[in-house]
């Protein structure tokens, strides 16, 4: 178990060349006193996908802006691809690709022109540039639309072009700031598959920010939950969910059942804990949901309580978020705007 409630120790041992990104105690305050980062630390191993998960306003985008040299921290330090982001911004810039929250494509230029200009900035020229542009367009399925102006692309296509622009110069580290925000579920699933494939084929280190729990779960080897400018907990999705020790059992009651009675029945069963009532259903936690559910149903039947449905669910990152941040993910997302 390598859960780190305080990832600072990992960051302190930062000279390790296996780490593509190391941030130590980053603090950033905006004019007006908004403290976007409040001592954020993280460490990302080379060649892995790392997710910063949190609601809007948690400090995810500010972290990415600092790590990509767009913004500077008030205090704290960070190294990306081995270079200090404040002291060696030019070296960092050559090593990274950045895909911001907005699809940052020039709508008046074609997909190919957007990509070529981006490549030229990094010194790619002539045949080498053309080959790389064609290769990328082909790989992500934009070859047919390559000579249309990007303003005519769908949101999903613009996003793909945007990601290619971050990859044209073969960066070592790619930053994806909310890559699938605003996309429909189908386009999102497609983009997830692309990101996984690109990460594998280009052997990239990826830091992605997201406020979709399932996105972090699906893509990332490690997840850091960010709240109010700090990392609250960090680990692999499985570790984080494992921390909750057990499955969620949900029993939906038929009409006429009185919920307090149900609670009284369940609380006395062995291996069942954390019984709560919500919206006509009873939730409980059990080490093994599969073994607990027959016991639960038998007990309810003995007590004469009619049951409409019963389900078992593995814990989700949503549950993890609730546990570490102390409020539900959706409720947290209501406040504030992203900086």
């Amino acid at each position: 178990m390598t859960i780190q409630a305080a990832p600072r120790e990992a960051a302190a041992a930062s000279n390790d060349t296996d780490l593509a990104i190391v941030a130590h105690n980053l603090v950033k305050t905006y004019p007006g006193g908004v403290r976007a980062l409040n001592g954020l630390s993280l460490a990302v191993a080379t060649g892995t996908i790392f997710a910063l998960l949190g609601p809007n306003g948690a400090g995810k985008s500010t972290t990415v802006k600092i790590l990509t040299t767009l913004s500077r921290p008030d205090s704290g330090s960070a190294r990306v691809a081995g270079f200090d982001v404040v002291a060696r911004p030019s070296s960092v810039r050559r090593a990274i690709g950045y895909v911001s929250q907005k699809a940052a494509v020039d709508p008046e230029a074609t997909g190919r022109e957007n990509l070529s200009l981006q490549g030229r900035i990094y010194g790619l020229r002539g045949r080498e540039l053309r080959r790389r542009v064609d290769e990328l367009l082909e790989r992500i399925g934009l070859a047919e639309a390559a000579d249309r102006v990007a303003g005519t692309y769908s949101g999903g296509m613009q996003r793909k072009l945007d990601i290619l622009m971050g990859l044209i110069h073969r960066p070592k580290v790619l930053f994806l700031d909310e890559p699938t925000t605003g996309l429909d579920p189908e386009a999102r699933a497609e983009l997830w598959a692309e990101i996984e494939r690109l990460a594998r084929e280009e052997r990239l280190t990826i830091l992605l920010t997201t406020h979709y729990l399932e996105e972090a779960d699906r893509l990332a080897a490690r997840v850091a939950i960010v709240d109010q400018g700090r990392v609250v907990v960090e680990g692999s999705p499985e570790e984080l969910k494992g921390e909750l020790r057990g499955d969620t059992i949900r029993v939906e009651l038929a009409d006429g059942a009185t919920e307090p009675r149900v609670q009284a029945v369940l609380e006395h069963l062995p291996g069942v804990r954390d019984v709560t009532l919500q919206d006509g259903a009873v939730y409980a936690r059990a080490n093994s949901g599969g073994q607990a559910i027959p016991v639960v149903l038998a007990a309810l039947e003995r007590a004469g309580i009619p049951v409409a449905a019963a389900t078992v669910a593995r814990p989700s990152l949503d549950d993890v978020y609730l546990r570490y941040v102390g409020r539900s993910f959706d409720a947290a997302g209501e406040k504030g705007t992203e900086r």
């Binding site: 030019s90 810039r93 950045y98 699809a103 940052a104 494509v105 900035i121």
Partner: peptide, 14 residues
Amino acid sequence: LDRGVLDRFLVSPV
């Protein structure tokens, strides 16, 4: 700036 095109340039070696 609004489209994010400028931010992309600013994190590049341009």
